[in-house]
Design a protein around this nucleic acid. Structure first.
Lengths: 203, 203
DNA sequence: CGGCTTTTTGACACCCTGCCAACAAGCCGG
DNA sequence: CCGGCTTGTTGGCAGGGTGTCAAAAAGCCG
């Protein structure tokens, strides 16, 4: 797919490095959110930012380095206010974290989905690392919600598995649209309760 | 990473189109199984097959077309003998299909993981379609095992979600190695039982 | 052995990426 | 207000990958 974005080619202007970096990065986030990694060239980014292509390399190094910063932005945004979970019994807390997850996911659905499915570069070591970090953070939140503040490695691994379910279910919900939000909510809540009761004790 | 494969450059020989196509495809399956999409050039495939690069394009068209055939092979292999599931009550059948899944996954772990994580091209329409087909097939098998031979759209969507859990859990198991197979088995079995009991009736 | 079909090759044109020397925008001392 | 200097910015170069196509040659058949 080719998308042409008209940019008024005004006279060249100098910006503070931080400002220029930020501007290019925001443009890149938008483009990589719309299309995949391979479909966005550094030329596209530069043109959309009204800047010479060399400048993109100057600020970000490699195209892959730029992409790493992009998905880091996409995945960091939803991490806000993860600590504010209510007191109560297990079903209540499970309900709360599932609802919170569905809220952030549906709010940032486009960029979040693009990032979590690796937007076309799954398999790369560095990209996988960034995504793995995000999944680890989500797994921590899940374990905290079900009352395991200091999990061992096996328990953490199981929590990551559950996050995988949450991701695939959210993706199914947002992309295909055949499930309703209540259905998705019940699915994730019931599953998490089962795992907390019957599976997590294994570890 | 760069891997050089020595190929004795014998005199050029003509092959039947089907044979040549098959030979190139098998080489491509091996290379794409070892490295990601971007790390394998058509030149690599051609050299490893002892053939001119143009011939790869002649038989497969685009590099992406070749890759589509490759992951189709990788994902089709495990689909064998999916029908041979035992009779018995629900827990027995759930146990059987989970065990079967873990068998095939661990047997073809390398290429299966490479394919299911899209080896570096998730996000692409066509690639996603091939993977979605494989997931649909797996979801059908799951639904058949739990006794829903003719599911509605919502039920099918939930089964796809569960397959997502199975995929992420298997990936966690095979790649990280912190979970044991019995742990993985119990996780997937308990979760599927819960979904069959409490979630699937929603649809 | 000569002609002919069909496989296979090699090269051409194009695009993308990373790099770097040169350019000029705009501040600063005179 | 102006010339110099710092440094943000540009444009072009070299290397490599991809798709295409006319031409070469492998091997069959008369």
């Amino acid at each position: 797919m080719v998308v042409v974005v008209s940019v008024q080619a005004g006279p060249r202007r100098r910006l503070e490095p931080d400002a220029r970096r930020e501007q290019i990065l925001s443009v890149a986030v938008r483009l990589f959110g719309e299309r995949g990694y391979a479909d966005v060239s550094t030329t596209d980014v530069a043109r959309a930012a009204g800047v010479a292509r060399g400048l993109v390399n100057h600020y970000f190094g490699t195209k892959k380095d730029l992409y790493l910063d992009v998905i880091r932005v996409m995945l960091t945004v939803p991490r806000v206010a993860i600590a504010a979970l209510p007191e109560g019994d297990l079903p209540t807390r499970v309900d709360a974290i599932v609802g919170w997850f569905l809220d952030v996911v549906s709010r940032h659905s486009r960029s979040w989905l693009a990032a979590i499915t690796a937007g076309g570069m799954a398999g790369d070591r560095d990209v996988d690392q960034v995504i793995a970090d995000a999944i680890d953070a989500a797994a921590d939140a899940v374990l905290q919600a079900v009352g395991h503040p200091t999990p061992g490695p096996a328990l953490h691994a199981m929590a990551r598995s559950y996050v995988g379910l949450a991701v695939s279910t959210a993706s199914e919900w947002l992309r295909r649209g055949v499930l309703t939000r209540p259905q998705v909510h019940r699915l994730l809540a019931a599953t998490l309760l089962t795992m907390a009761d019957q599976v997590f004790p294994d570890a």
